[in-house]
Design a protein around this nucleic acid. Structure first.
Lengths: 188, 188
DNA sequence: GTCTATAAGTCGATAGAC
DNA sequence: GTCTATCGACTTATAGAC
């Protein structure tokens, strides 16, 4: 079926992009993973830029939902932040994978302008969500020493993304853990 | 002269790698930048992996010297950290460039194992240097609230690298500034 | 040390049959 | 929707003349 092939292509492309970057996989790789021939992919995604855009749109929507779920499940800012950190840690998959946003950020010049805009929007969404965590923590004291929630949110995202990058470079999740440990000591 | 061509190649390659990544430049680009023909590069660097290794070795030595210089120039941990942050901010070059370590980390699978080892060694060097900053700050109180110097060092490097990545993705240094602002408020 | 010429492979993308 | 066949551009790398 049409839909299944398209989803299968997106799944394979996301896995490949997060493991090897946008330029690290080819239509040939995708074709083999999904079990169709290379040119057939162009029916679903005429250009690779179309695939990138679809990939980022789907990822963005999914993570918005996951963050919504965390917010519904946890009341305090600290508990939400803890779950958020766990999500980034899980995305590492043993040091073989990255958040798609980080993976796309590393190869900006092979992406069209509208995908760059999607990356910016994704980061703004994540920072806004984190901002709420730190805002709440000011009142509920679930994170120590929060003086500037907006700065905390921006810093937390860069910390997590940088930690992912280092961990994947050496294929060693312990580097992620080392980098985020300080932030975790502030959680009550 | 031999030496000059080799240095010119390294200079051009470093600029290109930091701006576009290891896979983002070709021997053709280098040849044009330096003013020789493509195959002539192979005389100096038989394979691209040789070039990568030389690039990282030179960069690592240079940054070790720069950090030594900062340590000689500044006494307190806070003043040293401030200079270190400035160095990472300057490396951005308006959002068009990255630290070579970050640039190499983004394209790990196109690098040979010994260059990956160089990246690890580079990061360990940076973290050890930062560790001294935070150790000093415990005594001289030049950075607020330092309880765990080792954790602070690991977190600071990931923060700076993540901030660089975000800033270059959108070619906007303000994203770097937003991410590091919190750390800077702790400097006395 | 640098050159010309070329090999051998990859890539994304298109044309047109079925 | 998927196929075969193919294009043109690009890549790293080598051979051998100068």
């Amino acid at each position: 079926m049409t839909t299944d092939t398209k989803s299968a292509l997106l799944d394979a492309a996301e896995r490949a992009a997060r493991a090897q970057g946008v330029d690290g996989f080819s239509y040939a790789d995708l074709a083999e993973a999904v079990g169709i021939r290379k040119p057939s992919i162009h029916y679903h995604f005429p250009a690779k830029s179309d695939l990138s855009a679809a990939l980022m749109a789907r990822y963005s929507a999914r993570l918005r939902d996951v963050c919504d779920g965390i917010a519904h499940q946890h009341e305090t800012g600290g508990a939400r932040l803890a779950a958020f950190i766990d999500m980034y840690r899980a995305a590492l998959e043993g040091g073989k994978s990255l958040c798609l946003c980080v993976a796309f950020s590393t190869s900006r010049d092979s992406l069209p302008a509208d995908v760059i805009a999607q990356i910016r929007a994704f980061r703004e969404m994540m920072i806004a969500w984190l901002r709420v965590c730190f805002d709440r923590a000011v009142d509920d004291r679930s994170i120590a020493d929060v003086a500037f929630p907006a700065m905390e949110a921006a810093a937390a995202l860069s910390l997590l993304e940088g930690a992912q990058l280092a961990a994947r470079a050496e294929e060693n999740p312990a580097l992620f853990d080392n980098a985020v440990q300080l932030l975790q000591t502030r959680l009550r």
